[in-house]
Nucleic acid binder design. Sequence first.
DNA 1: ACCCAGGAAATTC
DNA 2: GAATTTCATGGG
Length: 270
Amino acid sequence: MSELTFERISDLSLRETLDCGQCFRWREQGGGSFSGVVRGRAATVRMDGDSLVISGAKEADRAMWADYFDLGLDYAKIKDELSRVHPVMADAVRYAPGIRILNQEPFEALISFIISQNNNIKRIAGIVHRLCGSFGGEIADGVYAFPTAERLAALSPDDLEPVRAGFRHRYIIDAAQKVADGTVDLEAIRALPYDEARTALMQITGVGVKVADCVLLYGLHRLDGFPLDVWMKRAMVVLFDGMSPRAFGEYAGIAQQYIFHYSRMHPELF
DNA sequence: ACCCAGGAAATTC
DNA sequence: GAATTTCATGGG
């Protein structure tokens, strides 16, 4: 199987990026390598010095992988600007400077963050794993793609019982049906003004303001999105003295990810 | 037994 | 309308 290499990559730590709560499908293999599935492609990724190496990937997918890891954006510059906004922001950036916001598949982000509600990250990953194993296509031995909207749309809540997502089963099905029948057009939503995009997503049962913001940030790469979960609400009050997220500007979503990870790793601050 | 987990819907006041 | 309760499941 072939390997893709991206040379001279800065501002990327795979561990910090893949294990900061924005995605749920990567498993560390040891030695700093991670295995996962993106847009139906299985791969194992590692850093070799300042090169990002993606094994199991095809040359034809080079652009897709570059997009996934957001390699076209100058994170050094963005982190520098964000750090000037507030001293705690600078602390959060220093704590995990290798975080990038991934370009995840929109439907996967939608379902993943529906599952995230009133749940913990470890169990979210387990539910997503079982959802893929039960209803996703097998793309290699024991490796499964994320299920399509069409497949999930045809299920009943009881069919999802082996996934053990509890009360979220009907939310998953409603989301899949609205995506499959075009009621919710995720690619069209990508281009809408922020509030309209949010309102469009909130037509789905089980999608409120916070989940919509997560879908916009992680699935549609709207970097101005700023999901406020329990950790972020506390952080903005306690660490940022009630500052408005808008103070972070057009890359507020990136700031959010640094603050979220920093807060979760420092519970003693609260 | 109780409480909480990257919330949101349903119910009650 | 705003505040409270409920919703599955699993771990501490």
